[in-house]
């Protein structure tokens, strides 16, 4: 850990983050002791199924978690500044300039009664001392950079006049308009068709080369990650269960959940007659199993798994797994 603290490339360091949600039926431990790191210029993925807490992790990092959320513990260091200690105004200053986010459904995050260009210009005006005219030309630049074919027309369009792919490009333009060093993308292509998904992922890779930002990709699609990310965190029921670089993770997954996830992912490169599955289903978030949260579905379950939650084991070379099998 110490070596990492001195890592000059370190950009984001989250440690022991806990975000709990108070709901009528109890407490949802959405994020329960998550630690992760993103280095400068790196593409890192956080992979999990619905309800695993991956989006809540991202929202907490950028401090946009819902009002029912309580952050119980943790540190979110961005350039050695703990985001959790910042007041709202300083956090607002950082959003856009240092850290920005792209969401799954671009329609929900764009104001439907405001022209697309004006919404992006608003971000520029908020963060930079520029005139309206300059902001406009910066936005048009950003539009061009994200591959919008007719920037002028899109600038004056309302969101409903744009296609899904185009809206996502507007949102990406907004996110990069002030050149953040960290771009968080939460399922940025899930709502899009595959050929448009390929365009957007390609765009995110290009932008990373051009603007040298880091990408923190939140997704359920392990196939997408295989192609586009350097390192992967696997999340299950609010906790990180495994971490490795992409090639190692795919070649030799350690955690039984990761293994199951990889085996049940359908890929167009081979035909499978009977799919291997992970039996059962994701646990009820207000009533997590004791011990290891994966134990009711795990094929290798032992007694200790039912009673005690497994430690995060350091396997060397940056690999981490939280599983009793390797203790």
């Amino acid at each position: 850990m110490n070596a990492n603290a001195e890592n000059r490339n370190g950009l984001l360091r989250v440690s022991d983050l806990r975000t709990y949600l108070d709901v009528p039926s109890g407490v949802i431990k959405a994020v329960d002791g998550v630690s992760l790191e993103v280095n400068r210029k790196e593409a890192v993925a956080l992979v999990g199924e619905s309800g695993s807490g991956k989006s809540m992790t991202a929202l907490t990092i950028i401090r946009l978690q819902p009002v029912v959320a309580r952050i119980l513990s943790g540190e979110i260091l961005l350039n050695d500044v703990d985001l959790l200690t910042l007041d709202t105004a300083s956090m607002c200053d950082l959003r856009g300039t240092e850290i920005a986010m792209v969401f799954q459904d671009p329609m929900t995050y764009l104001n439907p009664v405001m022209r697309a260009g004006a919404q992006v210009a608003e971000v520029v005006l908020e963060h930079q001392e520029v005139s309206k005219g300059e902001a406009r030309s910066q936005v048009l630049d950003a539009f061009e950079r994200v591959g919008i074919p007719s920037p002028q027309r899109v600038y004056d369009s309302y969101p409903h006049q744009l296609s899904g792919g185009m809206r996502q490009r507007v949102l990406i333009a907004m996110a990069i308009s002030c050149r953040p060093s960290l771009l968080i993308a939460d399922e940025p292509t899930t709502a899009l068709d595959v050929t448009i998904q390929a365009q957007i992922m390609d765009l995110l890779a290009h932008l990373r080369e051009e603007l040298q930002n880091a990408l923190f990709l939140i997704t359920h699609d392990i196939g997408l990650v295989a192609e586009h990310c350097d390192r992967i965190y696997i999340m299950y029921a609010g906790q990180i269960v495994e971490h490795a670089d992409t090639f190692t993770l795919f070649a030799e997954p350690k955690h039984p959940y990761t293994e199951g996830l990889l085996r049940s992912t359908l890929s167009p490169d081979k035909r499978v007659e009977v799919f291997e599955t992970i039996e059962g289903q994701v646990p009820n978030p207000t009533d997590m199993p004791s011990g290891c949260r994966f134990h009711p579905r795990c094929p290798h379950v032992k007694d200790v798994c039912r009673e005690e939650s497994p430690p995060s084991l350091d396997l060397g070379e940056g690999r981490m797994v939280a599983c009793w099998l390797y203790e």
Partner: peptide, 27 residues
């Protein structure tokens, strides 16, 4: 061909080796 090349392959080695066709524009 474009549709196939745009479909994610859950294998980092194959995924990065294959030729990718990114279609221009939209339907």
């Amino acid at each position: 061909q474009a549709l196939l090349s745009a479909t994610p392959v859950a294998d980092p080695v194959k995924a990065r080796k294959r030729r990718r066709i990114i279609l221009e524009g939209e339907v």
